[in-house]
Design a protein around this nucleic acid. Structure first.
Length: 778
DNA sequence: TCAAAGCGCGTTTTT
DNA sequence: CGCGCTTTGA
């Protein structure tokens, strides 16, 4: 083979090279965990450019997360140099936004559309609920939104949903879906799912647009292919249908987004859909020791729905996987963190990751980290862009950019307080719907709103404020938007750059006295009174809120005010502010989902308990497929570890102020005991530790610590002793500290305590444990 | 109109 | 336990 830069590919193994050199036609790369798939992808791109003379401009690499996209761009830069900037490497969502900003007018939207996040969706749905009380009685916004999202994942339109709905509930959901979509359109807004779906719609209805992108994107690669849903698949199928140079990389064992509509069929049946697909399996793991891989393989082999594969490594041996048991969640946190702290003395804290199933679990660890002085980096959790103050500022910017965005207008019209209350908002709202105009337009005509009175002046002061910003600062000119190029962090972002491929790019940062997005934010802080509002709220958080805004401002400094839209779109699609400087020595805390695609020397997986992993929902559903997804999640976590994996669980745990006995996770019981390094008796692991499950404490919504052990410092263990036989019996009247008087209905002897059923005069029948309830005989 | 106080409800996971 | 939502009272 005639290869210019042969050395580059010599480091790859045989299979990896196959994948890299196979450039034409459909290719499915089944890449096990740690098999170097990202490496293969970037080498494949390098090969296309350097050996096949493909223009970087003709290559698209789609990822699932911003993190992955950034990493890919970074590594490509190292491999192919500045040309890497021409490659279209982005997430599904940002790719779609980029396309829609140019062409969505074909679908009757304005190109300055807003993007609604989960919060905005909920707010919008709430408004719909108010408007349609008959259809929404005892429904929850969330559930309806989930149903809508499920429709969208499958590319089902509201009219189809309505057509095929059976039963009242489904019909109703479909109806709400229809309403929701029309509201979005009114607001000139799209939700996350729409970003994909509108793009598909655009391509299906506009052949010329599709052709334009097909011609440009001659080689398409999709990372984490197992996580694509039906609509994402359709999008890729459309783009690749003419040249068919589609390469997808995935691992069915790491599919962990089924809940979000990821269709595992996309990977299982890829070969059927794309004729003459070549399949390459990457099964050599370069990341973990055999000890770790053995454990992971044993767990995942319990899944029925999977492509059989044998992940292997030549790193023989390695430290056994550790299993640790703790009395409670608190001790688990201290125990694990102490161990990490002492181990980290010899290596770097950066080598450690602490993984958990739910974000809620992070709190305990955060507190302890603070106590012990362990620096940590929390990935995920409350998103920077979801914080109140940031959302407020962004909402102002959205209003300035797209005044049709009612949700944004409503968010800020009375923040800071302008004396425009619920009643007035209602009046504006009904005026708006009566004349079929947007909320903001109604505000502009506030003096015409019946019985609005003096509030009209207050409304005017708000619209004046917005209008001034639009005229003097943003200079909103929609035709301008696609004709600009953004500089981001000193790099040319490849937004719209296809149009500018051969032109000189002006350095916007140098161009003197232009207004910037940051100026608009300062205007909101100063003239809008937002700073005073924050300070007057006076809570301890005010300072940190201002800090957050400052961070936003520094980002906004890089954008010309006329590029407000682009600023907004970047901020709405970014999951986490990318200030994670890797140079600092920090322990990483994150969810199992967040860990996908990463690796660490030492991985600690905590909360390895039934009802946590697998989580309650997946157990309760009774659907084995849900359990399999949890098992894959467990597998993903385990395969992050390079050198050592430590699993831990707590025997009991405080949950929602209640107090649960936990059973060790079934996934741990799936590991052959000889593979584990543990003090715990292995028989127990085999049979499962048989404790009484999920004792519901005494009808309390309160923490037993608080009720009976106030004096105990936080963190001290609460010990349950087998309690004495109570001095009351069925039929007796008793008194409870909270519920007052009641009649004992029954007493049942349990393993550790007596379970008492009491009929309280005020609060009805409650079941409680005698040891906690502290009932007094009357 | 708004702040303070009370109630109920909860948990996957993310672009 | 906490959060967010609703009710309540000024």
């Amino acid at each position: 083979m005639d290869i210019k830069n042969k050395i580059l590919y010599d480091k790859l193994n045989e299979r990896q090279r196959q994948a890299v050199f196979c450039t034409e036609g459909p290719l499915l790369i089944l890449a096990g965990a740690g098999s170097g798939k990202t490496n293969v992808l970037i080498h494949r791109i390098a090969y296309l450019i350097q050996e096949k003379n493909i223009e970087p401009y003709n290559i698209m690499a789609v990822t699932f997360t911003n993190k992955a996209a950034d990493e890919m761009k970074e590594r490509l830069k190292g491999l192919v140099g500045h040309e890497a900037q021409q490659i279209w490497a982005a997430t599904f969502h940002s790719s779609c936004v980029r396309i829609l900003r140019r062409y969505i007018d074909r679908l009757g939207f304005n190109t300055n559309f807003s993007i609604y996040d989960a919060d905005d969706q909920k707010t919008l749905m709430k408004r719909i609920f108010k408007e349609m009380p008959a259809n929404t009685a005892d429904l929850k916004e969330r559930n309806v939104l989930r149903a809508i999202s499920a429709y969208k994942d499958e590319l089902i339109s509201p009219s189809d949903a309505l057509k095929y709905a059976c039963g009242f509930a489904e019909k109703n959901n479909a109806l709400l879906y229809e309403k929701y979509q029309s509201e979005l359109r009114k607001n000139n807004a799209l939700d996350f799912d729409d970003l994909i779906n509108k793009c598909v719609e655009l391509f299906e209805k506009n052949e010329d647009v599709l052709e334009f992108y097909q011609k440009r994107l001659k080689y398409i690669m999709v990372d984490e292919y197992q996580d694509t849903n039906t609509s994402q698949f359709r999008l890729i199928e459309l783009l690749a249908s003419s040249h068919k140079n589609l390469c997808v990389v995935g691992d069915d064992d790491q599919s962990i987004y089924r809940f979000r509509g990821a269709n595992i069929e996309n990977i299982l049946s890829f070969e059927k859909i794309f004729k003459d697909t070549k399949v390459v399996r990457l099964e050599q793991n370069y990341r973990s020791t055999a000890a770790i891989l053995d454990v992971a393989n044993n767990v995942i082999s319990n899944n029925v729905k999977r492509k059989e594969k044998k992940l292997w490594t030549d790193k023989k041996g390695g430290a056994k996987v550790k299993l640790k048991e703790f009395e409670n969640g608190d001790q688990e946190a201290s125990g694990i963190l102490k161990e990490i702290a002492s181990k980290a003395k010899k290596s770097s804290l950066n080598d450690f990751a602490l993984l958990y199933r739910t974000n809620a679990q992070s709190r305990l660890f955060e507190e302890k980290c603070v106590n012990y002085g362990i620096p940590y980096r929390l990935v995920g959790g409350v998103n920077f862009y979801q914080r109140k103050e940031i959302k407020d500022i962004l909402a102002y910017l959205k209003v300035i950019s797209n005044s049709k965005d009612d949700i944004a207008v409503l968010r800020v019209i009375n923040t800071p307080k302008r004396g425009i209350g619920e009643t007035s908002l209602g009046k504006i709202s009904s005026f708006a719907s009566e004349f079929n105009i947007n909320f903001y337009e109604a505000c502009l005509n506030s003096w015409q709103i019946p019985s609005i009175g003096k509030t009209a002046y207050k409304i005017k002061s708000f619209t004046d404020f917005i209008e001034k910003a639009r005229k003097e600062l943003a200079k909103i000119d929609i035709s301008d938007i696609s004709d600009n190029i953004v500089y981001k962090n000193g790099d040319m972002d490849n937004f719209y750059n296809e149009a500018y491929k051969d032109t000189d790019i002006p350095d916007l940062l140098q161009s003197g006295d232009d207004k910037r997005v940051s100026d608009i934010i300062n205007y909101i802080l100063d003239e809008g009174g937002y700073r005073d509002y924050l300070m007057l709220e006076g809570d301890t958080q005010a300072q940190s809120r201002l800090e957050n805004i400052k961070e936003l401002i520094s980002k906004a400094q890089m954008y010309k005010a006329s590029l407000l839209d682009i600023f907004l779109e970047e901020t709405s699609l970014i999951a986490d502010v990318d200030t994670t400087d890797k140079s600092a020595q920090m322990l990483t805390l994150m969810t199992l989902h967040g860990a996908k695609g990463l690796e660490f020397e030492y991985v600690y997986m905590c909360g390895m308990e039934e009802e946590l992993l697998p989580c309650t929902m997946s157990i309760a559903s009774g659907d084995e497929a849900d359990i399999e997804e949890e098992r894959r999640l467990c597998y993903v976590g385990m395969t992050r570890a390079k050198k050592q994996l430590v699993l831990s669980y707590a025997k009991k745990r405080l949950i929602n102020g209640g107090f649960d006995y936990k059973e060790v996770s079934r996934f741990i019981r799936e590991i052959p005991p000889q593979l584990l390094d543990t003090d715990i008796k292995n028989e127990l692991l085999h049979q499962g530790i048989n404790r009484k499950k999920s004792v519901y404490i005494a009808g309390y919504n309160t923490n037993p610590y608080k009720q009976f052990n106030k004096s105990l410092p936080f963190g001290k263990e609460f010990i349950v002793k087998k309690s004495e036989k109570p001095d009351y019996k069925a039929g007796d009247m008793v008194r409870h500290i909270k519920f007052g008087e009641g009649e004992v209905l029954s007493i049942t002897e349990g393993k550790k305590d007596y379970e008492i059923e009491v009929n309280f005069k005020k609060s009805g029948i409650k079941k409680m444990m005698a040891g906690f309830a502290k009932l007094e005989k009357m």
